[in-house]
């Protein structure tokens, strides 16, 4: 187990180094921007888990991300503190995913339908929350605010509702959350549960004939993925300071899929890296008006589906693997098995 997790831990240590060095060398504006990117990276990680390892084609991972953000914001406003709000955000989102997943997996809906259903749920959230402008739509003390969204209260220290964190400190929390989630997912895919999920991804019928209840395993990994997406959502609304229905729109749903495709299905660090790369690419594109963001992302998606279907990280690993094998006189390592199975 430890040997398989070695790459994961190496990346985690690099992440910790980055966490402590970045605020010393970067400006506050960059740090606040980075917090948003980190939150999105957690979202990418959750989809990398359920799609890359669970084989569940979820087009609506942003629904859980946005739901987590909304639950956090509304309950933090009502409770006057963030500790329980964070826990509630994760729990309610996971419960919602479990209920939705029950209908999907126990109905044995095929993967293509699953993508469309989850996307539809996301779009319905989008159109519903957009309509909630007006004083009659409120939960406790929190107005839903329709198109304009709700401003999110900042995180405070656990059970200390008077000490709020500054943006720079929120960066530490977000980075720590990303690293913890990454190590957790890296561990999860190497447990027995994770390996069964991978085997279901490879061949559902065979896994079922071996006696595994594939519906339950899929539901499990789907629910865990939704919980992680909710953590990303909590960090996101803290980084931005506001949550609007726009998180649920088609563009963001597509973006999540693109991160995982570009980074590579079956890896964890690939989608995280792709998130940061595309986040800065789209920010840079936002500064000019010649090329539209939608246009660029559409082209990227089509090119990757047609030409680089495995994504960047596995392609690079394969390339290096092929080079290493060609070198004569070198003893091949005895590690066997599919490279994409271990965490990277």
């Amino acid at each position: 187990m430890l040997r398989q997790m070695r790459p994961t831990l190496v990346y985690a240590v690099l992440g910790i180094l980055f966490m402590f060095v970045a605020p010393q060398v970067l400006q506050l504006f960059t740090i606040i921007n980075l917090t948003t990117a980190i939150a999105l990276a957690i979202l990418a990680l959750s989809l990398a888990l359920i799609w890359g390892y669970g084989g569940i084609l979820c087009f609506g991972q942003v629904a859980f991300f946005g739901l987590g953000a909304y639950v956090y914001t509304i309950s933090a406003i009502n409770f006057g503190g963030s500790t329980w709000a964070i826990l509630l955000a994760i729990l309610i989102t996971a419960a919602f995913a479990a209920a939705l997943g029950y209908f999907i997996f126990f109905g044995r809906v095929s993967d293509v339908y699953l993508g469309v259903i989850t996307l539809t749920v996301t779009l319905i959230f989008f159109s519903l929350i957009r309509r909630t402008s007006g004083p009659e739509y409120k939960i406790g003390n929190a107005l839903l605010g329709g198109f304009n969204g709700v401003s999110s209260p900042p995180i405070n220290l656990p059970w200390d509702t008077r000490t709020f964190l500054f943006p720079e400190q929120v960066f530490y929390v977000a980075m720590a959350a990303l690293i913890l989630c990454y190590v957790f997912v890296g561990w999860l895919v190497n447990t027995k549960f994770g390996r069964v999920c991978v085997s279901i991804r490879e061949n559902e019928l065979r896994a079922e004939l071996l006696g595994y209840d594939i519906r339950l395993y899929k539901l499990g990994i789907f629910t865990i993925g939704a919980g992680i997406a909710a953590i990303g959502g909590v960090m996101f609304c803290n980084g931005v300071g506001r949550i609007t229905p726009d998180v649920f729109n088609l563009y963001n749903a597509a973006l999540t899929i693109i991160w995982v495709i570009v980074g590579g299905r079956g890896t964890l660090i690939g989608p995280i890296g792709a998130t940061f790369a595309l986040f800065y690419l789209t920010s840079a594109l936002g500064g000019q008006t010649v090329l539209n963001n939608n246009l660029v992302l559409g082209v990227i998606l089509i090119i990757f589906v047609l030409l680089v279907p495995k994504g960047v990280a596995p392609t690079v690993v394969d390339w290096f693997g092929a080079r290493r094998r060609k070198k004569p006189g070198r003893v091949r390592r005895r590690r066997r098995g599919n490279r994409t199975e271990g965490a990277q």
Binding site: V112, Y251, I257, L291, N294, L295, G298, V299, L301, L306
Partner: peptide, 29 residues
Amino acid sequence: LIRWLYGRMVDTLLATWGLSLLLVGIVTS
């Protein structure tokens, strides 16, 4: 686009999604 992808339902979905973004982008431009 589509004819290269017959029989690969997931890839067709993703490619048509890319097409959807592309068309939105072109019309916006």
